[in-house]
């Protein structure tokens, strides 16, 4: 079972060209910040290395950080421009019993990151859900379409903080 410092050392030695950021001081869970375009190479290494062997992806969550500029759009509603969104990957190794949290930061206006479905099949529906509710594009995903909302929902991505509800959907009134 490896500790956070040993895992960080292994990553630093193997990927000298990638700029990681290590946060062992984070209060409840230490995490590693990885640049968005390198996440699939790092994850492949984490899964196949014989000392680390992270064979299971427990959870993939997207969070809207809501830290841009608040402006008013033509209809008078308050929307946000700029800012970031974060994606958190929880990894675990069943053989060695260690866990790791990896974080990726993307832009809020046009979020896009590489998919890890080819590494862990578990990520398939998690990434579809992140696309459906936040609008994050996953490159190289085998089948990226909406999963929870109706397939013809054209009013945006609901879990963003500045989402507005439509009045009617196919003849049914949506608000109370």
């Amino acid at each position: 079972m490896k500790s956070f410092e040993e895992i960080s050392e292994l990553l630093k030695n193997n990927f000298s060209d990638i700029q990681f950021e290590f946060h062992p001081e984070a209060k409840f869970e230490p995490y590693i910040l990885v640049p968005a375009n390198k996440i699939d190479t790092v994850c492949l290494f984490l899964r196949d290395n014989n000392d680390l062997y992270f064979d299971s992806l427990i959870n993939l969550s997207a969070v809207d950080d809501f830290n841009g500029n608040k402006i008013k759009d033509p209809q008078g509603n308050e929307i946000m421009q700029g800012g970031t969104m974060s994606i958190y990957y929880h990894l675990e190794s069943i053989k060695f019993r260690h866990k790791l949290l990896v974080k990726v930061i993307v832009d809020r206006d046009n979020p896009s990151v590489n998919s890890v479905t080819s590494i862990w099949n578990c990520a398939n529906w998690h990434e579809r859900e992140a696309f459906d509710l936040f609008g994050i594009n996953f490159n190289n995903h085998p089948d990226l379409r909406r999963i929870l909302m109706p397939y013809d929902w054209e009013f945006g991505h609901p879990l963003k903080k500045d989402y507005q509800n439509p009045e009617f959907y196919q003849g049914m009134r949506v608000p109370y």
């Binding site: 409840f28 869970e29 427990i58 959870n59 969550s61 997207a62 969070v63 809207d64 958190y88 929880h90 949290l101």
Partner: peptide, 29 residues
């Protein structure tokens, strides 16, 4: 932020709770 998990009858149920210091959670996945 914290990730807590329990063994439910159907498998592992996990909650990823992000807190921003106010009385409601910022995000629960």
């Amino acid at each position: 932020h914290i990730y807590s998990r329990v063994e439910n009858p159907r498998g592992e149920l996990g909650y990823f709770i992000v807190s921003d210091g106010s009385t409601s959670p910022f995000r629960v996945k």
